[in-house]
Design a protein around this nucleic acid. Structure first.
Lengths: 112, 112
DNA sequence: GGCTACGCCTCGTAACGCTAGGTGTAAAGA
DNA sequence: TCTTTACACCTAGCGTTACGAGGCGTAGCC
């Protein structure tokens, strides 16, 4: 898979897994890996900055907790985050449909 | 549409339109805009460097010509370019399918 | 004569994902 | 006991990329 393929689509993926309930960062990575069938195996250095960015943007809210002696920061979608997710979904639909259209186009059949 | 959405997918699109026959740079832009229903309206500063990069990589070959007093550089897919296209296609299929899988996943239905 | 479309080019910038490095706890294995 | 692995967080810097802005030149139209 292309190294840059995720660019511009990562927010969508992360918002998407968080739409099914709050998760902490590490769990987001796990969830994405599992759901995608090991295709998306994201580095921590990839995911954490995104979570921070989304929180600053108001699309996520976070809450510190502790489980089994380990600090965790749990993220949940805000109302704005849900709206953002829907918008990103639509954006993805348009994008992928357009790519597929370009890909499917074949040259004119020979008309003898 | 996301500003970065194209990243990592642009080569695929360009190789794809060139698979249906040689085109010069300006025509590539036109073709992509038309095929995508105006969705992909790429800047020249985006496309020309990609064509150069793909040529250096051996995926395209170019030929200068003149039509109506205007210089044109026509690009055509090499054999390596065709192989690259197929590989990129497969890559896109995997990527988009994986994104869709992540998007479609819903929380477990309540089992009362 | 000026504007638009055609047709090519390059430099600089911003944004992004990721590598590499760091901190710390808990559990499992040697 | 010591070390490794998994969990869980963080950040600075790097490389790639698409794109904006600018430049060069021709043809055709108003």
């Amino acid at each position: 898979m292309n190294r840059e393929a995720l660019k511009g689509h990562l927010d969508l993926l992360i918002l998407s897994v968080l739409a099914d309930g709050p998760l902490h960062g590490y769990a987001v990575i796990d969830e994405l890996r599992t759901r995608s069938g090991e295709v998306f195996d994201l580095a921590e250095g990839t995911v954490y900055p995104v979570l921070h960015r989304l929180e600053v943007a108001g699309h996520l809210s976070s809450e510190w907790g502790e489980v089994g002696g380990r600090r965790r920061r749990s993220y949940r979608l805000t109302r704005a985050g849900s709206a953002r997710l829907e918008q990103q979904r639509a954006s993805w639909q348009l994008f992928s449909a357009s790519v597929n259209t370009v890909l499917r186009r074949k040259p004119w059949p020979s008309t003898p």
